[in-house]
């Protein structure tokens, strides 16, 4: 089995798409130099700085540029670095990219890919650690995807680039160097809108994405010998959500735990809980559970930020809580 890191898989996907389609361009701060984490390393050498373009620190203008170029025929990939800085480009992304197809009565298409990285890693503090996927998923016209393994990273970046809509591709910084099975050259596109059932189970469904997928799988493995069989779903696509897979799973297990690193309130978990209870209320054998970061900015101190990353221990506690017997305590 060939292995690669998630970062290498993204790079490979970008490389293949740029080679396949001359309309694909990369734009972003220092992308021609590889960017701060080296994701785009080598692309400028392969495709030239005409197509791999370093930009000034002008997120709003560059986002607008990418959208405009997409409207008239290019397929730009823009890197915004930290998702926290997408705030500077929100007008262009939300008021323009997301709505132009609609407002133009279908005349315009915006085949734009926005790459951002998110999450807590490296004690970077409140402005470089957020998980803001729910904001973006709340905007009609945007698609939002996030991979948890190299194969999906490559499959989803390709799908994002080929999609005729603006797609925000979220990379969890803490997964960049996580290794996994390589997708391989020319590998398939991972369809946007399809979740992956990574482990089948009967008693509870754990739905999550990004870094928490590994934690959920570890927790499920630990629960199995104790007689709790957990089904683990990697959502992969946060907009649109694959409700069919989720609902089918919950119909079977009767229970749902949603896990994310974003703060608790108003997150993807809330949306999932709402839709699952609507579709499968009479199949629910217990309240839907949510495990998420405290509703707070993220502290810089390494003594504090670890309370913002749901891990295996928390998942175990939440699941066991759902099966706790009377008087047995938590």
């Amino acid at each position: 089995m060939a292995e690669q890191s998630l970062l290498e898989a993204i790079r490979e996907g970008l490389h293949e798409e740029m080679a396949r389609d001359p309309a694909v361009y990369m734009l972003g701060e220092d992308v021609a130099l590889g960017g701060p984490f080296g994701v785009t390393a080598g692309l400028a050498e392969a495709f030239g700085t005409q197509r791999v373009v370093n930009t000034p620190i002008s997120e709003g203008a560059v986002m607008g540029l990418a959208i405009g170029a997409a409207a008239v025929g290019l397929r730009p990939v823009i890197e915004i670095m930290f998702i926290d800085f997408i705030t500077l480009a929100m007008d262009q992304l939300v008021n323009h990219a997301a709505k132009l197809h609609y407002m133009s009565g279908g005349q315009l298409k915006i085949p734009l890919t926005v790459r951002v990285q998110c999450g807590i890693s490296g004690n970077m503090g409140a402005q470089h650690s957020q998980s803001l996927e729910a904001w973006l998923a709340h905007v009609p016209g945007l698609k939002v995807v996030t991979p948890s393994c190299p194969a999906d990273a490559k499959g989803l970046i390709k799908a994002a680039i080929r999609d005729d809509n603006p797609v925000v591709f979220i990379e969890h910084r803490g997964l960049y160097w996580a290794r996994g099975e390589a997708a391989g050259a020319g590998a398939a596109v991972t369809p946007i809108g399809e979740a992956a059932v990574l482990r089948e189970g009967e008693h509870i469904t754990i739905a999550t994405f990004g870094r928490q997928v590994a934690a959920a799988l570890e927790a499920a493995a630990e629960l199995a010998p104790q007689g709790i069989s957990a089904e683990v779903i990697d959502l992969r696509s946060l907009q649109p959500l694959d409700m069919d897979t989720l609902v089918e799973s919950v119909r079977k297990t009767g229970r749902l735990l949603v896990v994310h690193e974003a703060v608790s309130e108003g997150g993807i978990g809330a949306e999932i809980a709402m839709r699952v209870q609507q579709a499968a209320f009479y199949d629910l054998d217990g309240p839907i559970l949510r495990l998420a970061a405290p509703f707070s900015p993220i502290p810089a101190s390494s003594a504090l930020d670890r309370f913002f990353v749901p891990g295996k221990a928390e998942i175990l506690r939440a699941v066991r809580g759902a099966f706790r017997r009377q008087g047995a305590g938590g």
């Binding site: 926290d84 705030t87 970077m124 409140a126 402005q127 470089h128 900015p297 810089a300 101190s301 504090l304």
Partner: peptide, 21 residues
Amino acid sequence: GKGGSMHLVAMDAGFVTATGV
């Protein structure tokens, strides 16, 4: 410990804020 390197604030000295953006 909540701020860290990029988000220092020292109001006693008139240092209103630093920012990472």
